[in-house]
Amino acid sequence: MQVRNILRRGLAAATMIMIGLGASAQDRFITVASTTSTEQSGLFAHLLPAFEKATGIKVRVVALGTGQALGLARRGDADVVFVHDKAAEEKFIAESYGVKRQEVMYNDFILVGPKADPAKALGRDILEGLRRVEAAKAPFVSRGDKSGTHAAELRYWKLAGVDLDARKGPWYRDTGSGMGPALNTAASMNAYILADRGTWLNFKNRGEMGIVVEGDKALFNQYGVILVNPARHTHVKQADGQKFIDWVVSKDGQQAIADYKIGGEQLFFPNAAK
């Protein structure tokens, strides 16, 4: 009896502590699973206060790679996804996890590398640039984390006709990390890396790195927004989630996206369907 008493008292104390901690006010909020590029570029910090002001709804952003963000939403742990991998997004909809995909904005990918450019990859052609990096066996850092940027990188290698499975060597460094950590790694080993412009512009630890390839149409990076299917996950905050989607594609939301600049440079270009 006494053993149980001791344990029961411990449990009771633990429960009291939990209740004490949990007793904070509940705000009206939605959870958005998004990508590290939107969070780390500072876009959300600029965008969300305007949305909150317009609607009174707080947005809680969980920033992950696109693959991970979609996985989170599949389990019902987010109300809205805001990501950038069209193929994966369409699969998400086809599997009925999401209601409808709407395009919001785009930015572009850039090939970043050492300013000395040992692979002579400088130019406007991403496929040619990658071919030269591979030919020179210059160090290349890959996200390797199933993010939107990682998916794009693999797509470019394929289009460039480089069979990674066969050519992968010590020059190709699969880091399995987010955009920022991967940039840190690339900076410290003077490697080439495919990055999104937003994260790059907001990135401080550039070392000897600069932009090597930019401006290729193929580098276009489209962001989409999707409401998680309430038919699949009944707790999804359908009305408030839809409000967020309606706002980011509205005139106000699109203007707010266009207004976000770092050092005078616009990071994201709104392109929602009218």
């Binding site: 053993v3 411990g10 449990l11 633990a14």
Partner: peptide
């Protein structure tokens, strides 16, 4: 830590 003490200390003693 408080929770863990409430659970872990009686358990450890027993």
């Amino acid at each position: 830590t408080l929770m863990a003490c409430a659970l872990g200390m009686p358990l450890g003693a027993l």
